[in-house]
């Protein structure tokens, strides 16, 4: 694989139209993301932000009716979810599922090794792996007891989100899509999570933050802010757009679009 340079195309979505349960949600969405960038996506409830995130990760429940998503030159939508993950696409879930009985650290190790195999790297032994995990847990201010628990099992809302970011920092994805990772976090946790995300920022990676709150963007300063409404990106700008949205809400942008 060639080295990714700042400014290279990471994700290019063109005219994406998608239905769920027979209902049209995305209505011709365009979005271009380049290496080194952080994009924030904001928008009203039910606009399709999670739909977009899940489609990019490969969730099977959606019908793609038209359009394309190209990831590092490959047709992303043709890849199985696990193939996307191994190529560096990471979704931080809005509602991470609890998986009782599946050990958290096992999942982390299996995930990392599947990514490394794809990159042609050797699998890590237990010691090397734990060294990395310990360092990242320190960064995320997480207690090591979380490793032994079932995946998200009995985690509080904020702990689940932290666990998502822990996974992200260990996997070091090329494209991280974080769906409302800031929702439900207390102020300290918000800072910790932001530190985790900022630690990932690099010239050869990109981050997409789905959020409702401009405050997150004080900690993770985005290069672009988009408004997703009625299944499309209806406005894009720099971080001042987020401040404007906080003042004015979304109504002024939605008028004239065919909201569902």
């Amino acid at each position: 694989m060639n080295q990714i340079q700042r400014g290279d195309l990471i994700l290019d979505i063109q005219g994406l139209v998608a239905d769920v349960a027979g209902r049209n949600i995305l209505k011709g969405l365009n979005l271009t993301i380049r290496a080194g960038e952080v994009h924030a996506i904001m928008g009203p409830n039910g606009a399709g932000k999670s739909t977009l995130s899940q489609i990019l990760a490969g969730r099977p429940d959606y019908d793609i009716k038209a359009g394309s998503a190209t990831y590092l030159g490959e047709d992303l939508l043709a890849l199985a979810p696990e193939e996307r993950a191994r190529r560096g696409v990471f979704l931080g879930f809005q509602y991470p599922v609890e998986i009782p009985g599946v050990n958290n650290v096992y999942l982390l190790k299996a995930a990392l090794n599947s990514r490394r195999r794809q990159q042609g790297l050797q699998e890590l032994d237990a010691f090397e792996f734990m060294t990395i995990v310990r360092e990242k847990m320190k960064l995320m201010k997480m207690d090591e007891s979380f490793l032994k628990r079932g995946v998200n099992e009995g985690f509080s809302g904020g702990e689940k989100k932290r666990n998502e970011i822990l996974q992200m920092t260990v996997l070091e994805p090329t494209l991280a899509i974080l769906d409302e990772t800031d929702s439900g976090l207390d102020i300290d946790a918000l800072k910790v999570v932001s530190t985790g995300v900022n630690s990932l920022r690099r010239d050869d990676r990109a981050v997409v933050l789905v959020t409702h709150y401009q405050r997150l963007l004080d900690y993770i300063v985005p290069d672009y802010v988009h408004v997703l409404a009625g299944g499309k990106i209806v406005r894009s700008g720099d971080r001042t757009l987020a401040l404007e949205l906080e003042q004015r809400g979304y109504d002024w942008l939605i008028e004239g679009t065919n909201a569902a």
Binding site: A57, G58, A80, P81, E82, R86, I99, L107
Partner: peptide, 16 residues
């Protein structure tokens, strides 16, 4: 098997 759990594991790179 719970489809949401399945998808979560796949999205972390585990094969089916």
């Amino acid at each position: 098997l719970d489809e949401r759990m399945m998808f979560y594991l796949l999205s972390r790179g585990l094969d089916r």
